[in-house]
Design a protein around this nucleic acid. Structure first.
Length: 272
DNA sequence: TTCAGCCTGTCG
DNA sequence: CGACAGGCTGAA
């Protein structure tokens, strides 16, 4: 799925073209999808202007005048500026098209793990999806970051992947982050020295910053709102490098499931 | 804290 | 054909 850098890229792409525009129509192609998401009367948003778009963790929120739409793109959800008549060329998995005054864009979801929700703007602060999120990885400060590790004692990878603890990081960026910071993914959070936590913190910030600059990572499906792939995957040091050797020390990288997710790390550079 | 399950697609 | 894939939920 899109993780923080991809969601941020998508958010910026939408923002650039849509803020202030009025939604003229919603063309629904998969009403069953909306049914499964318990979204009713989506069309009441038609006629409203889009006032802002926000991101928290991996969620994107569209603020209209009276209603808001909350999206989580799951593993394979994406937005693409596209016209209805362009849909034929192999564009499957279309859920709907938001027809704005100038820029219509489609919402697609290949594996249907993405989520959409519509509520009144005033219900924003009550959204349980957002309330349970930990601080956004771009916003968290060093002191808050330290307390994350000291307040519980869990495996570091597990902890960083937990959106309730810190939001925005996913499997790609945690793999890369742990390698960059030379931290073993199994290491218990309370066993981290303060200096190691600081290393993680600053590496996390620069990793996310670089990834956003390169418009995210495209492994298979991810494309931005213009249909372009990201570039950050070209810089991967360990993610997806199963069977390769460590770019730092040359030892064999190790691959195993940690926290139910494929994990590649260097047992030498990232020793306990 | 684990783990199947939700889906579709691709790769070996 | 099985294994695996940017995520998350809820049940055991």
């Amino acid at each position: 799925m899109p993780e923080l850098p991809e969601v941020e890229t998508i958010k910026r792409g939408l923002e650039r073209k849509l803020i202030g525009q009025k939604l003229k129509n919603i063309e629904i192609f998969d009403s069953n999808y909306l049914l499964k998401n318990k979204v009713k009367n989506l069309n009441i948003i038609v006629g409203e202007k889009l006032s802002s778009i926000k991101r928290k963790g991996k969620y994107i929120i569209f603020f209209f005048e009276k209603n808001l739409l909350l999206f989580h793109l799951g593993l394979t959800g994406y937005f693409l500026f596209i016209e209805k008549n362009e849909l034929d060329k192999g564009k499957k998995h279309i859920i709907l098209i938001f027809e704005f005054e100038k820029e219509p864009f489609g919402y697609f979801d290949i594996r249907t793990f993405a989520k959409i929700k519509k509520v009144k703007v005033e219900e924003f602060s009550t959204l349980k999806e957002l309330k349970k999120l930990g601080k956004d990885a771009l916003e968290i400060n060093l002191d808050e970051f330290k307390s994350i590790f000291w307040q519980r004692n869990r495996g570091v990878k597990n902890l960083l992947m937990d959106q309730k603890v810190i939001s925005g990081l996913g499997n790609i960026y945690v793999n890369e982050l742990l390698f960059r910071a030379k931290i073993n993914p199994f290491k218990k959070s309370r066993d981290l020295r303060e200096e190691e936590i600081e290393r993680l913190f600053f590496q996390m910030k620069s990793l996310l910053g670089e990834a956003i600059d390169l418009k995210g990572s495209s492994i298979k499906n991810y494309i931005d709102t213009e249909g372009k792939k990201g570039e950050f995957q070209k810089t991967f040091l360990v993610y997806g490098k199963k069977g390769f050797s460590c770019p730092r020390c040359g030892n064999d990288l190790k691959y195993q499931k940690i926290a139910q997710r494929g994990t590649t790390y260097c047992p030498n550079c990232q020793s306990i």
